[in-house]
Simulated scan of single mutants.
Amino acid sequence: MKLLSDENFHGDIVRGLFLCQPNLDLVRIQDIGLRAVDDPAILDWAAANNRIVLTHDRATMPNFAYERLARGEEMSGLFVVNDRMPIRQVIDELLLLIDCSQQSEWKGIVLYLPL
């Protein structure tokens, strides 16, 4: 599965995912030069690069995702993670999704965690 974590996604979660799956295909906004761009631009980049976005932003990111879908634009998926979830639980649930599903299953889907 190809993932993109947004700017405010908890770094300990990213590190934990890589500890569990060193070959995980996850890039961070900070690493690709998109730190200062807005949510629609992040969703554009993710769609163009077939990446599911990981975010804690429940306030605005899902709205932009739904607007994309309403316009008929592509979206590879959005996983909205509650920032109050314990880090270990987030890692376990994301690993479950990564191990037990396919990238294509999340196309056009906004998923809220916890599951």
Rank of each mutant, 00 (worst) to 15 (best):
I32E: 02
A70N: 12
K2W: 07
F79R: 01
I98D: 06
I98R: 02
P22C: 14
V80F: 02
F18Y: 15
A59D: 03
R58H: 12
M61V: 12
M61T: 11
N82D: 15
V37R: 00
I52S: 08
D92H: 03
P62A: 03
H56P: 06
L97E: 10
M1K: 00
N23E: 13
S76C: 09
G16H: 03
A46M: 03
M61L: 14
N49Y: 02
F9W: 08
A59Y: 04
H10L: 04
D83V: 06
A48T: 07
N50L: 05
S5Q: 08
K2L: 08
D31E: 13
N8P: 04
D57E: 07
I98V: 15
D44F: 01
D44Y: 01
A47L: 00
M61S: 10
T55F: 05
I87T: 14
L19I: 08
C20W: 12
E67M: 09
D6Y: 01
Q21A: 14
Q89D: 15
A59V: 10
V53A: 03
F64L: 02
R28A: 14
E7S: 09
L17M: 07
P62L: 01
P62R: 00
R88M: 15
L4C: 09
M75K: 05
H10A: 10
A59F: 15
N82C: 13
D12Q: 15
L43Q: 04
F18R: 12
R15T: 14
L96W: 10
I91T: 11
R35A: 08
E74I: 09
D83K: 12
A59M: 09
S76D: 07
L26V: 11
L78S: 11
L4P: 06
G72A: 07
Y66Q: 09
T60A: 14
I52N: 03
T55L: 02
P62T: 00
E67T: 04
G33Q: 01
I13N: 02
D39M: 04
N8Q: 14
M1I: 12
C100F: 12
N63M: 11
E93N: 10
A47R: 00
L94K: 03
N50V: 03
M85I: 05
E74M: 09
G72P: 04
M1R: 06
I42N: 06
L54A: 05
L24S: 03
M1V: 15
G72D: 11
S5N: 15
T60V: 13
I29A: 13
Q30P: 07
D12A: 13
C100W: 04
A46V: 03
E73H: 08
D38F: 09
H10D: 09
D39N: 15
N8V: 11
L54G: 12
L4N: 08
H10M: 03
I13M: 05
I98A: 08
G77T: 01
V53Y: 04
L43N: 04
S76A: 14
R28T: 06
D31I: 07
M1H: 09
M61Y: 07
V80Y: 00
D92M: 13
M85Y: 02
H10Y: 11
D44N: 05
D44I: 00
A46C: 10
R88G: 13
D99M: 08
C20L: 12
I42A: 02
E93K: 08
G16C: 06
E7G: 13
G72W: 07
D99Y: 04
D25F: 09
